[in-house]
Structure formats: C-alpha cells, structure tokens
Design a protein around this nucleic acid. Sequence first.
DNA 1: AATAACTCGAACATGGATGTTCAATTTGGG
DNA 2: CCCAAATTGAACATCCATGTTCGAGTTATT
Lengths: 204, 204
Amino acid sequence: MLVAQTDPNTQTGPNSARRADARMNAAAIVDAATRLLARDPDASLADIAREAGVGRVTLYGHFDSRATLIAAVVDAAMARAETELSDVDLDGDSVEVMRRLLGASWRLTHRHGALVQAAEKSLGSEDLHEAHLEPIARMRTLLERGRGAGRFRDDMPLTWQITTIQDILHGASRAVYRGEHTPDAAGELIETTVLAVLSPPTVE
Amino acid sequence: MLVAQTDPNTQTGPNSARRADARMNAAAIVDAATRLLARDPDASLADIAREAGVGRVTLYGHFDSRATLIAAVVDAAMARAETELSDVDLDGDSVEVMRRLLGASWRLTHRHGALVQAAEKSLGSEDLHEAHLEPIARMRTLLERGRGAGRFRDDMPLTWQITTIQDILHGASRAVYRGEHTPDAAGELIETTVLAVLSPPTVE
DNA sequence: AATAACTCGAACATGGATGTTCAATTTGGG
DNA sequence: CCCAAATTGAACATCCATGTTCGAGTTATT
C-alpha cells in the first residue's frame, strides 16, 4: 500500500458516517483517472474530474493532491493485478504457462498503459518500483525455469528478455490506442511474438 | 526542413556578419538539446542552456521558442539520419540487409532516443510524422521484400512487425540509459531478437 | 584600439496546472 | 421531513516553465 489514506473512504471502523454518493464519486474518480492516465500520463486533474463527471473541488475533497490520487490509482491497479495474476496457474510446461501469463499481463497492460509513467513522475519511483517489481518477479521466475528446462533460449541476458517482453506489451498497448489492432488481435500477436523471441535457436 | 529559420545561423548569402562563437554556441545548444531530450522529452530550456554552458537568454537569442529549438534539433537529426541510412547497402539477402539496417537504426535511436516524443508535444506531429516516416518507409520496403522472398514470416501484419522493431529499439535505448547494457551489447541483442521475431516459423 | 556582435544575469510578464477557500445548493439517510 | 454530508462554481494564491526586456560587461573581428 502506497498511501496512509486521509480519505474517509478507507477509514476502518464504523463507516456509517460515509455517504453512498461520496463513495461512488471517489470510485468514479479513480476509475476515470485510470482510464485517462493510461493514455496520457500528463492528463490534468481538471480533465480527470470532467471525465469522472464531477467538479474539480470534489476531486480535491477526496484526494489531497495529484500524488495522492495517483497513489490511490496505483494501489487499486496493483490490487487488481495481484488478483488476476495469482489466478494464473504456474504449473506445467513453461511455454504454456508463458502463454497464460502473457494473456493476463496483456489485459493488465492494456488497462493501465502509461500509468506507470504517470506514477514515476508523481511518486518517488522507489516504492513504486518495489510494487511494480512483483509482477516482474513472477515473470522472472518463469523465465528462469523455462531457460533451465531448455524451453527458452538462454543465450541472452534475463534482464534483456524481461525488458523486451515489457516493451512489446507497452508497444501493443499504444498500437491498440492508435487503432491499429483490436485488443484481442494484439493479444494473439503478443503471444506469437514473445514466444518467437524466447524460442531456443534451432541451430547454434 | 521543418523551419523557415529566422536565426542568422542559416541565412544564405554573405554570413560574414556572423561571429564564430555565436555559431559555436548555437551548435552547442542543439547538441545539448539532442542529448537531454533523448533522455527526457520534458527537459526544460533552462536545463538545456545549462548543459550547453550558456545563459538562458543566449538560447532565446538563437531560437525564438522551444518549438523552434526542437524543430532545429529534429532537422539536424533527420539530416544525420538520412546520411547514415543512405549509406546502408539495400541490395542482397534480406536478412543481411536487415542486420545492416538495424545496426544503423540502433545508432540513431540510441543517439536520439525520446526526441520523437519531445517533438510530438511541441510540433503539430503532422510534419514530423511525415519526416519520421521516411526511415520507416525504408524498413517497410525491406520487410515487404523479405516477406515476399520467404526470408521473413508474413503471418502477422506488417504494421505489427514495424511497431515491434521500433519498440525493441526504444526499449534498448532506455535499458542502456539505465546502465543495463553497453550500446554495443545492445546492438547485438537487438539484431538477435529482431531476427528471431521475423524468422519464418519452422513448422506451421 | 575601436566597434559591432555577442553574452549574461536579473527582473518582469504570461499562462497553465495545482491547491485552497467560500458561500450557495443539492442530496442521501435517518 | 430534516439535517448533516456532499457537491459545486467562482475566485484566489502559488508554482513553474516559457518568453521578453534591459543595461552592463566580453569578445571576435577589422
């Protein structure tokens, strides 16, 4: 968790004092922010408030600052990410697992897009990096296993393979926003492309 | 050419009225801007002036605005790019040509990095896109030829292959800035990775 | 050495985004 | 039905990057 929320949203105990519309609005703001920041990490709070169908002041009523809001967005994103990624079955053939993991990662990437960059500007990037590290660690573990089993090529650095996979995911996200492919088509292409990158060379 | 220069730099005719240090400074500014914007497309003009070892006012003496400066940087970059890319021999086996073209493209990408994004924000992105389209067209032509000759797989959209290559190049650029690889090592990795992506699948 | 070109810091003006305050209004929940 | 909670636009303060102006100091060139 990145934030010690001052927002009444997450106050423990009897939240009977919390009105329904307020909770709705807070959620709508986080939602709108996620959508806008996924496309443009520089989206202004005014834009986000408008997208959420809410006055700018209301936004500040829920979140102290841009940083606070972004932290909340990141928290929500990480929570959903953890849920969806932990659903992926990590047992079995490395290639098959990679397919599944890529599918889940693609959905997350497409949903969150450039949010990482927005977070990097507003937050110290240390906490964030730690947080964002968890999904990467999952991928790293899988890669190591697949390399050991001869299912993935191991003649290039692990970090390079991870970087490349991330780049392909984010590139696909932008391509979809540009309208070049549907999300589903992009998912297929990602799978094919990444597996081509990871396949051991036929002749060495 | 993106700019109708108001800067005495590029005035034709007798530039005897142009002092040597002024020309040096203008060049140093473009140079510093290229370096900084390659890393951070939001680098401020104050940063750039400092990096160039020049006062902020001097910068404005040479370039009317941020947009003007960036246009100049892009012009210079495009000129060098054209020179270096036109040196690449496009005849022969598609795979070999791709190796050469990737090498040249990598040097350019590493040098210019995020400059494209800086340009997209400051310029209308129309002219720029036209300009930036030329190197891409070169790559596209090569891809089409290689696909026709059965040297590259053609079971994925051409636009996807182009996007992927660009993503890998830019990702490598960032990885090098992060210090994960040397530029030369990255060059090798790019070559291997891109060719893996383009290789026709062994069994279909 | 004289002069025009150039550079420089400091100070000012502007515009956009971020926060803040306030008084008036709407709305949810008991 | 009533009241506290929540929302709202408008107006204001602040910050930062962009541009501009000015006057004084340097330096290249002849």
